[in-house]
Amino acid sequence: MILVFGGAYQGKTEYACERYAGMEIITEFHLKVLEMVKNGIDAVENIKISLPEYADKVIICDDISCGVVPVDAAARKWREELGRVLAILSKESDEVVRMFCGIPTRLK
């Protein structure tokens, strides 16, 4: 599993398509987690169970952890759940890349 994260519009997908050509890429993982939160699904448990499914895939996810604490309760929950999910994915990934203004940094 490969995790590519970073702020919105930082060139994550473009980079992944080039660097990991041929691998299946899951984009906008942060929205997947948002859907789970909205539907009352425990995102952390769900991701843990789904790990084998992601083993050979590239996961692309926006980092939404650096703004003001949202007023909206669902958004707060989303932000925290995604943080926990990304920690799990980072731990399980063979490679972790953070994108900044189109420049990749390999964290793992």
């Binding site: 970073g6 702020g7 919105a8 519009y9 930082q10 948002l34 926006d62 980092d63 939404i64 952890s65 650096c66 703004g67 003001v68 949202p70 958004a75 707060r76 989303w78 932000r79 995604l82 900044f100």
Partner: peptide, 9 residues
């Protein structure tokens, strides 16, 4: 400014 990492749609 890096304004790309907050939890807002």
């Amino acid at each position: 400014d890096y304004i790309y990492s907050d939890a807002v749609i």
